[in-house]
Write a protein that binds this DNA or RNA. Structure first.
Lengths: 201, 201
DNA sequence: CCTCCGCGATGACATATGTCATCGCGGGCG
DNA sequence: CGCCCGCGATGACATATGTCATCGCGGAGG
């Protein structure tokens, strides 16, 4: 039996995925979690073969959970299952020790097949996505540029960001300007959207 | 048997939901669709008791599909199942003829229960969400203000929007200014986010 | 009939934003 | 050691954005 822990914040989707995996005779869902912290705790308690993690979750996200799991539950292989095939997500997931990266709009039947391949020691990554991640290159934003761009995402004004990050307004403008250049955008909104599409935030 | 057509764009989630419903002895998934147009076509062909529709789908969305279904397949009851419990979505779904509105982060076991209640003629709506929709009031944005705000969502500049909508720059600024006032925002980005959170776009 | 409201536009104005040059500090690296 | 790079800052400048007053048109409704 392949023992799986499932982490996904939307309960209905989580329950549905559990039922999908339950159809397979050789797969057993031994634990469920609604966020990254729960996922680590449940995996420590149940020692599954595979942790199937969503990325977008409140609190600790799936990628951070993957890093933690590598340390705390070494025998557990991490599979990322996410809505968005952002190149940056794939890169970060691999760096965090994931062995497979699946997107939710591939066919349902692929899921069980991927888990079996993972248990045989294979890595499972969509070839097109892998190519996109490689051709897109690494994240060009410096840590501080990322902070500022993230802070700008919700419509905050320069002043808000400066106060929140304890920076001068001019500095914020400079970082924002740099981020706009590096993303090839024309203003901060485009920069935020492009960076998010790449998984750089 | 309750005969259900399922529309959801992410195939893995769609397959998982189908398997979840398949566990119920009195429910049968008789058709699946990946977008609103397919949903209408499949429902016309299979005449299900219930159409279970996601809102966010490419092409015709779940709400537009609900309207179409009311005309084309009158016996079919529409249930909306969506990620976001935005007040404006609920309102629009009800106006489009939906009889139930479920959010994906309620427990998986609620889904089948809701479908049974719907078949008994009940409406199923989360009380808290209903209250939020009523207290938020109707969409205060005029159709044109919505157009302009939507066009601004991707980081387009005033000039881009003016060209795209065949308006003068000043007019675009005026509409944008009005939308900012009505949403209580401080700039267009906040206005876009607030309007989206309410389901006004 | 008159009024209100949405649509579309113009002009003027005050700020906010984006860009650039330039500075100092400090850590890593050949 | 000298160089580069990230961080933080300042000042100046050109645009972009947001606000306001005001106009005309046309349809809906008291």
């Amino acid at each position: 039996m392949i023992r799986v822990v499932l982490a996904e914040d939307q309960s209905m989707v989580r329950g549905a995925l559990a039922s999908l995996l339950g159809l397979e005779p050789d797969i057993e869902v031994v634990g469920e979690a609604a966020n990254g912290d729960e996922a680590v705790a449940v995996a420590e308690a149940t020692r599954p073969d595979i942790a199937l993690l969503d990325i977008e979750m409140p609190g600790r996200d799936g990628i951070a959970a993957a890093e933690e799991l590598r340390r705390r539950v070494p025998g557990c292989r991490v599979v990322i299952l996410t809505t968005f095939g952002r190149p940056g997500y794939l890169r970060r997931a691999m760096e965090a020790g994931a062995v497979a990266f699946l997107v939710k709009d591939s066919p349902a039947r692929d899921l069980a097949a991927a888990l079996r391949r993972v248990l045989r020691g294979e890595r499972v990554i969509d070839p097109g996505l892998a190519a996109a991640a490689l051709s897109a290159g690494p994240n060009p934003l410096s840590p501080r540029e990322r902070d500022v761009l993230s802070a700008a995402a919700d419509g905050s004004t320069i002043n808000d960001i400066a106060l929140r990050l304890h920076l001068s307004e001019g500095t914020v403008r400079n970082y924002l300007s740099a981020a706009i250049q590096k993303t090839g955008a024309r203003n901060r909104i485009e920069a935020v959207r492009k960076a998010q599409a790449q998984g750089w935030l």
